[in-house]
Amino acid sequence: MEGRIKAHPILEFRRGKRVKFYFEDREIEAYEGETVAAALQANGIRVLRYTPHTNRPAGLFCAVGKCSSCLMEIDNVPNVRSCMTKVKEGMHVRRQNKRGDVL
């Protein structure tokens, strides 16, 4: 798969089972155990949302749940930190527009 490190001099990547999820209705391949944000970066998808005031594209920044730059709509729930959410088979992920509606 694109964007994934194949051979590494120090690390061995023990990737989990292959799973499929949907990003804007497009099928994305990922491995169990990785986060939504990581799987999207591996597939070359960087724009994760558009900002509330100026409608600018925003992407992953800290990857450890601190900065909230990667908020997405996951299975219809807005404002989810995609860097802290593991992929699940059949999950639906969308770019978040603005603030997201309160459910």
Partner: peptide
């Protein structure tokens, strides 16, 4: 704030924990 500007730690996490090269 442009996508593709990452904190250094984020790139380490992607690379070394998930084996993803951004």
């Amino acid at each position: 704030d442009l996508p593709g500007v990452y904190g250094a730690g984020a790139v380490q996490t992607l690379m070394n924990e998930y084996g993803v090269m951004p």
